[in-house]
């Protein structure tokens, strides 16, 4: 193993030298309205019920509403207080929720301009999250593929991708996965090395970066076989999971498996499909009643599906 290899491994498993022992799960989906917050909230409740100290972070900076799903109504502190240095540690912004073992950092009182986080603020936040002491940290991300979203994937080697079985949503999940993929490669290489790589790749194929980032790896392997192998190995060691949400009866239940297969075949990224969550009209009612769905409808198919998914998350 070369020294570069060691350095990169270390960098991935511990953000900036701090070894994190918690399971940090960023939860992302390319498109809005597919149930990221719904899943984050309910998975959090289920984990807490199994006696895991669980922290939910609403990192959907511009449009936070995770607090509504876990019925946390009076939040006087939030993520913005930490970012704006009103409090000195992230721990001070943590709220207890009505559910034992479940804690959350709310975004309810975020300032309106917080979505445009400066690089330094973001790094500070990411460092703080990777140091925080909980069994599980679930980060509810915003839709889209802005750096503010995908950088949350850089603090752990895990992640949950959420999509619904619709072309629009699948299109965006592929976009997100590719963005994370490129970001991870960038993270592993030094910045100037990455630039050289991108230039080389673009010289060979104009729109390679946008349309098939897998081309990057091929170019890298050509230029620096050893480094290329190392990056490929590291990419394969990630623990990504895929959840299909809002699956209706007429949908093909195998779509999730097929998506994972395509990604593994063409991106070399192992993503484990951990289950379908059935579409349920009552999710709407549950959100309107401002309580966790799994408590309001404990015997619905969707709740059973969520329990299966939690098993898939705990099984690492």
């Amino acid at each position: 193993m070369t020294s570069t290899h060691k350095r990169c491994k270390l960098k991935l498993f511990s953000f900036n030298g701090v070894l994190s022992m918690v399971h940090i799960w960023p939860i992302g989906g390319g498109k809005g309205g597919i149930g990221k917050s719904f899943l984050t909230g309910n998975i959090g409740v289920l984990l807490a019920r199994q006696n895991f100290k669980t922290l939910l972070i609403d990192a959907d900076l511009g449009a936070p509403n995770l607090h509504t799903i876990v019925s946390l109504h009076d939040s006087n502190r939030g993520l913005s207080d930490f970012i704006n240095k009103k409090v000195s540690t992230l721990q001070e912004t943590v709220h207890k929720t009505p559910i034992p073992n479940l804690f959350m950092i709310s975004g309810a009182r975020n300032k309106l301009d917080i979505a445009n986080l400066a690089h330094e603020q973001k790094m500070k936040l990411l460092r703080a999250i990777s140091r925080i002491d909980y069994d599980y940290v679930l980060i509810d991300l915003s839709a889209g593929t802005s750096f503010n979203t995908i950088d949350f994937f850089s603090i752990s080697d895990t992640g949950i991708f959420v999509t619904s079985p619709e072309p629009t949503s699948i299109e965006n999940i592929y976009r997100l996965i590719r963005s994370v993929y490129v970001r991870k490669i960038r993270q592993m290489l030094k910045i100037y090395r990455f630039r050289v790589l991108v230039q080389e790749a673009e010289a060979q194929n104009q729109d390679a970066i946008i349309n098939n980032p897998e081309f990057l790896l091929a170019v890298l392997k050509n230029m620096e076989p050893e480094e290329g192998m190392m990056v490929e190995d590291t990419l394969q060691s990630f623990q990504f999971k895929l959840v299909l949400n809002q699956v209706r009866k007429q949908d093909n239940p195998k779509i999730g498996v097929m998506i994972c297969k395509i990604i593994e075949k063409h991106l070399g990224l192992k993503i484990q499909f951990i289950g379908n969550v059935s579409y349920d009209d009552r999710v709407h009612d549950s959100v309107c009643n401002k309580g966790p769905f799994i408590d309001n409808y404990p015997y619905s198919q969707a709740t059973l599906d969520l329990k299966t998914i939690v098993k898939g998350i705990m099984d690492m």
Binding site: P165, R175, M258, I262
Partner: peptide
Amino acid sequence: YQLYHDSSLASYSFFS
């Protein structure tokens, strides 16, 4: 074929 055919939902937008 299920993965790659023209109107396959699973690989929608993945390939040019």
